[in-house]
Design a protein around this nucleic acid. Sequence first.
DNA 1: CGACCGATTGAAGGTCGTCAAACTACGTGG
DNA 2: CCACGTAGTTTGACGACCTTCAATCGGTCG
Lengths: 248, 248
Amino acid sequence: MNTYPISQTEAPAPLKPTRIEQAWQGPPQCRSCGIRHLVLFSELRREDFALIHDPIDEVELGAGEKLYQADVTGRHVYTLREGLVKLVRYLPDGTQRIVRLLRQGDVAGLEATLGEPYQHHAVVLDHAVACRIPVSTIQNLSAHTPRLHSQLMQRWQRAVAEADTWVTELSTGPAKQRVAHLLLKLAEYSDPESLFIPSREDVGAMLGITTETASRVIADLRRRGVIERAAPGRHRVDLERLERLANP
Amino acid sequence: MNTYPISQTEAPAPLKPTRIEQAWQGPPQCRSCGIRHLVLFSELRREDFALIHDPIDEVELGAGEKLYQADVTGRHVYTLREGLVKLVRYLPDGTQRIVRLLRQGDVAGLEATLGEPYQHHAVVLDHAVACRIPVSTIQNLSAHTPRLHSQLMQRWQRAVAEADTWVTELSTGPAKQRVAHLLLKLAEYSDPESLFIPSREDVGAMLGITTETASRVIADLRRRGVIERAAPGRHRVDLERLERLANP
DNA sequence: CGACCGATTGAAGGTCGTCAAACTACGTGG
DNA sequence: CCACGTAGTTTGACGACCTTCAATCGGTCG
């Protein structure tokens, strides 16, 4: 059973394991962001950045650490620069269900901009780097420039679309198909030659199956040569065969 | 197998079975809407309504009829005034999966405001009445008044939240629990004394189980007295016992 | 080296899907 | 008015799949 330490309500300002702390602060760095085309601020113009007053920090987290915690009203939104983050909900019986994954360019905790409490626990799966943007900054920009609106809407739309495929592809059909779909999705997220496959427990929580079933299916895929170990925690996958398994 | 007639790309302007056609047209009617507090325009002020130029029509649909169809780029958003609508996706094998339900006050087809094609088929389950709002109206209002923004964001957030509970409650655990959760959700939507329970096929498509399993579980609930027929298509449900079944 | 954690595997039982048949409700047409 | 047809629901039988409980294996870290 997963028992990630629930310590703070939200990722603290000086984040415990933050290796790069406040490497960025404010406008100028955002404009030269390496993944600008992917992030929330992609459409902003030079003059818009002058509206950013509160600090935007970069935080770096290892596997198992939290970006934020469910049910607390946070004041930050997170843009993922690298890594993989799971959004988790706990069921009344104490088990967890993973509701979505976030990857590079995705935004976590958008609900904070509406004053809503976070709807999930955001836990790092694979080593992650994120920008922590104050909600005040979003609201400030949103009030003074229309260019953020469409980006925000598109983020919401993307979240809904992801949630929908989670239902149709990862929560439907027999376990083998679900695993195949999941691996294909993970392959989109990263390199199919060096794929990160989460723990069997997490795989189970994503697919609504038990850890053992997840293990059995994955072990079977390895025996059949559909996936093979490349490095510790990294795998090579045969996309074509996975496609056939996913959509028979 | 469901084979709803796929005729048009979007609900046609003079909708085939529209009983009340253009009962409303434009600003004045919206302001006196009976469910104003629930709808997208709830925050608008007197002067904002002057910005509505294109007609807002009221459409009335019977069970099985479509609001719109997936994969087409439509020019309308729909606000549900009455009834129940399912959002459907077809799987590669031809079966369908119901991804969400919409009820009074919910908005369907929001993705159209972003120029995106509709992501689902929106099919009426229970007799429905909806307002068809042109995307141009939304964009017009959105460009000239900030009061629509927060409403739009909240709609998106609500859609994500619904999608997430769909995963955690309706796509997780054994069939009995899923059915119990679904009935509780339907009871929120309408009156627990006179509950509409969709066809077994639809129940199956919502829960990711077969029609037969859905039938067996529901028939069993009736035998045990947890639900009972009140009128044709209407049922009374024992909420407390359902709660216990849903969260054992 | 030994403890520990995650992954794997086994065995048994329960749940669910599949295929098929019977039953019910309802509307149609004789 | 009743016979009949149709579509949806229910039920049965059987097998496949999945969960549960438990044991084993493999690697990592003190």
